[in-house]
Amino acid sequence: MGRPPCCDKVGVKRGPWTPEEDLMLVSYIQEHGAGNWRAVPTNTGLMRCSKSCRLRWTNYLRPGIKRGNFTEQEEKLIVHLQALLGNRWASMA
């Protein structure tokens, strides 16, 4: 998939996120809400690009993200939707 072009800028940190960075991002989102991702690096002091912040929140830190194995009912639903929609995973989600 590759690195987002915004992360090619000099001074933008790449690689794994630290617990401190996660805390900064979560605190900012709790106070200001998710949405204006371009403002996040500037207003938090994170040396990450806005896309990296958005993806970190969406894929790892957002409340309600389910971790672990699928239930038998969830597996059946996924198989049914895949048969119905093909590999349109975003539509299934």
Score class of each variant (00 low, 15 high):
L61P: 04
A90Q: 06
T58K: 15
V40R: 04
Q82K: 12
K51E: 14
Q30A: 11
N59I: 02
Y28L: 09
S52G: 14
I65Y: 09
T42S: 12
G45A: 09
R3P: 00
N36P: 03
A93V: 13
G68H: 06
Y28S: 05
C6T: 11
V10F: 00
D8N: 09
N43M: 13
V10T: 13
H32L: 07
Q30I: 08
N36F: 11
A83V: 08
L23Y: 02
P41G: 03
Q30V: 08
C49M: 01
P63T: 06
L81A: 05
N87C: 11
M24Y: 10
L23I: 03
R38G: 04
P16E: 04
K13S: 04
E75D: 09
S27M: 13
M1A: 15
T42V: 15
C49F: 09
N59Y: 10
G11T: 10
L46V: 14
N36W: 10
L85Y: 03
A83D: 13
S52H: 01
S50E: 14
L77V: 14
W17L: 12
T18K: 01
C6I: 11
E75Q: 12
L61I: 03
R48M: 04
Q30T: 02
I29G: 00
V12M: 02
N69Q: 13
T42F: 07
A83P: 01
A39N: 07
Q82W: 08
M47R: 05
A90R: 03
K13H: 10
T58N: 15
E21M: 15
L85P: 05
L85T: 12
E72Q: 12
C49R: 00
D22F: 05
